[in-house]
Design a protein around this nucleic acid. Structure first.
Length: 509
RNA sequence: GGCCCAUUCGUCUAGUGGUCAGGACGCAAGGUUUUCAUCCUUGAAACAGGAGUUCGAUUCUCCUAUGGGCUGCCA
């Protein structure tokens, strides 16, 4: 009989959530939904010095854009709240004291400055990382070395202290990871981590274990950067006499170039966002987000899901619901995944195509309220341009000539395609256009073919120059569709205005 | 430096004690298209290295190398 699945995503509000964090949240969400469990958010703000205003709202907003909805969390309620650790502050000290009473932990009075000094000295003597551990603690100021009376005196007096884990000597800590299998670490390699800080707050380790236990968390699914401290957490569960949850440590997201963990600086430097949505720092520095770049949340989520997990089938396009259905931790890979901006674009393009013309038109109208096009015309335009676009806005950018006479004319196409007699053909073609009674793509095409036939011309000799004189560019949707969309008056008026401009360009060349 | 984790095409990945090592993105070529895009076909492209186990290892074990993470009164 297994416990009900309850998982949490536990970010710290020290800045915006980057895409690695979103993926962790996503996998938690997928796992919870797959097993009819609960996905909750807990804010880990035990470090008051690193608190960044707005970060918590950013996290909730970004997850909401992604469609990753927690059922418990700050502002959402739930039976295990509060869901912000600073609001739970009072509950941690008794747990820390309990460990001291049971000799699993001890008071330490060494100040941060003293420790820094010791580390510095050790470094100069060739020891790169001095640790407060089962060996060194015997020569430090703590309740294990100081006389009992002095300890009590110091505590009574209000001397600052921390509570440290009393790491046992030479014990193998074994735990099972759902992704990596058995992991074994000897406690000699672990130090006496601070569990409770002198400012009255717990550290991550204590708060995390206490909260996961008191919130009935069944599975801890988090990034691989936590793997080294997992043994400590396992030991803490043992010290409290609690059953530990299942662990699953996710592979890291790596940067596309060179090596290393994806970091917030990489994105805009390499030309892609690392954040789900825009984030502006207090200093006014902007980090761009997928939302504002024009990515659909479905595409973003789809891409993230496949980075480090695969369904074992050739399917690559998944809705959130389909991901829930297909997801399993067993199919999460062990090694870090380099993020690929190109493939991300492919997901975006694929998702854009799946939108209906009406949906896309509605979205464009919302982002461009001043657009004068009717809904029906905009939908037609979307239909013509959609296959050529990666982002919705591309439709308006690459299709700008649908909205107004172009100012620029592609010089290279002119140079390659414009012959001495071309302008003459176009004038003749204008006369034919003039004569078309019912102006639609079928009638225009047949008139065009008829004209070519009568003149004995090839299609390329006139069609491309025609396109260029109307749109300014040498590529795009079917020219008869474009013509029909613009209407007879507009097409003729453009040609009248543009042909002289093109002639000028030819003269200059 | 120490500890831990990892290693299949450029990238994301599938896979098995005997496979032509499969797919996707990207790239290249061809076809379709008046053009571009889409679409279709084809192609180049990988089991880090060395031992061992075995009739046989990409697959199992060990070593090495490489990459990554952690090493704070950060999370």
């Amino acid at each position: 009989m297994s416990k009900p699945v309850r998982v949490r995503f536990a970010p710290s509000p020290t800045g915006p959530l980057h895409m690695g964090g979103v993926r962790t949240a996503l996998y938690n969400y997928l796992f919870a939904k797959k097993h009819n469990g609960t996905f909750l958010i807990r804010i880990e703000d035990t470090d008051q010095t690193r608190f960044v205003p707005g970060a918590q709202d950013y996290i909730m907003d970004a997850l909401s854009w992604c469609g990753i909805m927690p059922s418990e969390g700050p502002g959402l309620g739930g039976d295990f709240g509060p869901y912000v650790q600073s609001e739970r502050k009072a509950m941690y000290r008794p747990y820390a004291e309990e460990l001291v009473a049971n000799e699993k932990a001890y008071y330490a009075f060494d100040t941060a400055e003293e420790l820094e000094q010791i580390r510095e000295q050790a470094k100069q003597m060739g020891m790169p990382n001095w640790q407060y551990n089962s060996v060194t603690r015997t020569s430090m100021k703590n309740s294990l070395t100081l006389p009992q009376t002095e300890v009590e005196e110091r505590l009574a007096k209000g001397d600052p202290y921390v509570i440290r884990m009393k790491m046992p000597r030479n014990e193998d800590v074994r735990f099972h990871d759902l992704i990596r299998g058995w992991v074994v670490v000897n406690t000699n390699n672990l130090d006496d981590k601070v569990l409770f800080k002198s400012d009255g707050m717990p550290t991550y380790h204590l708060a995390n274990v206490v909260d996961d236990f008191t919130m009935n968390i069944s599975h801890v699914i988090r990034g691989e950067e936590w793997l080294p401290s997992a043994p400590l957490h396992v030991l803490l569960y043992q010290a409290f006499g609690w059953d530990a949850p299942e662990f699953a440590h996710l592979p890291l997201l790596l940067r596309p170039d060179g090596n290393g963990k994806l970091s917030k600086r990489d994105g805009d430097r390499l030309g892609f966002p690392v954040f789900p949505t825009n984030w502006t720092t207090a200093e006014g520095e902007l980090y761009s987000g997928y939302r504002e770049k024009g990515y659909l949340p479905e595409a973003f989520i789809n891409m993230l899901a496949l980075l480090g997990w695969n369904p074992g089938t050739p399917q690559e396009i998944f809705t959130l619901d389909e991901l829930v259905e297909a997801f399993s931790l067993e199919r999460v890979s062990k090694s870090g995944a380099k993020f690929d901006p190109e493939k991300t674009k492919w997901f975006q393009q694929s998702w854009l195509r799946m939108q209906t013309d009406a949906e896309l038109a509605r979205g464009l109208k919302a982002t461009n309220p001043s657009m004068s096009l009717s809904d029906k015309d905009l939908e037609t335009l979307v239909g013509l341009m959609k296959e050529r676009a990666t982002f919705a806005e591309d439709i308006l950018i690459d299709g700008a000539y649908f909205l107004g006479n172009p100012r620029e004319f592609d010089q290279e196409t002119i140079r390659k395609k414009w012959k001495a007699e071309t302008t003459g053909y176009l004038h003749e073609w204008m006369d034919r256009l003039e004569g078309i009674a019912e102006f639609n793509s079928v009638t225009i095409e047949s008139a065009f073919k008829k004209y070519l036939e009568e003149k004995g011309l090839g299609i390329g000799a006139v069609l491309l120059p025609y396109r260029l004189s109307v749109t300014g560019v040498g590529a795009g949707p079917g020219m008869f569709d474009v013509s029909a969309f613009l209407g007879k008056e507009e097409v003729l008026s453009r040609m009248k205005q543009n042909l002289p401009k093109i002639a000028d360009i030819l003269h200059e060349a």
